[in-house]
Design a protein around this nucleic acid. Structure first.
Length: 304
DNA sequence: AAGATTACCTGAAGGC
DNA sequence: TGCCTTCAGGTAATCT
């Protein structure tokens, strides 16, 4: 079976949209959100059907409150997809009327809007039922993804959003410099830590550090202000470019519509170990930093 | 307090 | 061909 076929829903189901991206970081999640938003906002839910134990991550998940709820907005916070809902009229009097549904795609999470129920595959773990026959199907081969449901009033102050750091595209240059100066930690570990900055993952870390010519093992507090400013600028540039190109697709393809991202064609270091640096020709090296495979140019990104 | 290690999970890829 | 091992990584927990 070809690798292209693996990611596809059964051919007889007409899908109005497929949002499928592996290794979702900020640009990929943003892409999914932008594609889902017009399909979901304003729609009423019939309910939610989890099929796999563990896919729902919060202890109390008032499933029934979703019946008749209306989707008000779909947004992104870090690598989370955040759906804000208003509960149906029969629920409104006895309980909170605003709910927040959170989805984390983990490593391999995919959301597909189907216009009719179809046979579930091995890795389909949850359906969100919409009005009519439509549904949003959650597929996640490695099962690192998960769903949460919280009253909207407390969504930002409780797990899993509570401890998230600022958005890399919103943090000011000054605050970013302060963040780096305030921690004695390898810069790559800091960038990957969602409590420090929410949304960066392995790919965009490596690309940003290469662009800024900073060694991933530099202690963040040892990075001089001009270099920190440069890193801030490159992170913004790269994330924005990746969002414009609808993220990066590494392994799975899913046409039509949600389509693969295109930023993978722009990688300068990620997955390129052994090949020459585009800047100086030195062979790119791979090492382990913060427990993650890391690619860098030993010449451009001088030793810490 | 930083950082190293492990666990979770499965498909892909490489070795023999 | 097929079995085995290793690797990939977002996050959390645990140890040093």
């Amino acid at each position: 079976m070809s690798r292209e076929f693996l990611g596809r829903p059964p051919f007889f189901v007409r899908q109005s949209l497929v949002a499928t991206i592996d290794m979702p970081e900020l640009p990929e999640v943003e892409t999914v959100v932008r594609q889902l938003r017009p399909q979901l906002v304003g729609r009423r839910l019939r309910g939610i059907r989890p099929y796999t134990p563990g896919v729902i991550r919060c202890q109390a998940f008032p499933k029934a409150h979703l019946v008749g709820a209306t989707m008000l907005d779909v947004r992104r916070r870090g690598k989370f997809i955040r759906c804000d809902l208003m509960t149906g009229p029969h629920r409104r009097r006895r309980t909170c009327d605003r709910l927040t549904l959170l989805v984390h795609l983990g490593m391999t999470g995919q959301l597909t809007v189907l216009d009719a129920p179809s046979a579930r595959g091995r890795h389909d773990h949850l359906d969100l039922l919409l009005n009519g026959r439509d549904l949003v199907r959650f597929r996640d081969a490695r099962r690192f993804g998960g769903w949460w449901l919280l009253p909207s009033q407390v969504a930002d102050s409780r797990a899993p959003l509570a401890d998230l750091g600022p958005e890399p595209l919103e943090v000011s240059r000054k605050d970013f410099r302060r963040l780096l100066a305030g921690h004695r930690q390898q810069i790559k570990a800091l960038l990957l830590n969602q409590r420090r900055l929410a949304g960066m993952g392995n790919i965009y870390c490596d690309e940003s550090l290469f662009a800024a010519a900073i060694h991933p093992q530099m202690q963040s507090c040892d990075i001089a202000a001009p270099a920190a400013n440069g890193l801030w600028r490159h992170i913004r540039r790269i994330l924005r470019a990746a969002v414009r190109r609808r993220g990066s697709t590494i392994a799975t393809f899913c046409r039509p519509d949600g389509g693969p991202g295109e930023y993978q064609d722009r990688f300068k270091v990620y997955g390129m170990a052994g090949r020459p640096c585009v800047r100086c020709g030195t062979t790119l090296r791979r090492l382990l930093v913060a427990g993650r495979g890391t690619t860098l140019c030993p010449t451009c990104q001088g030793r810490p």
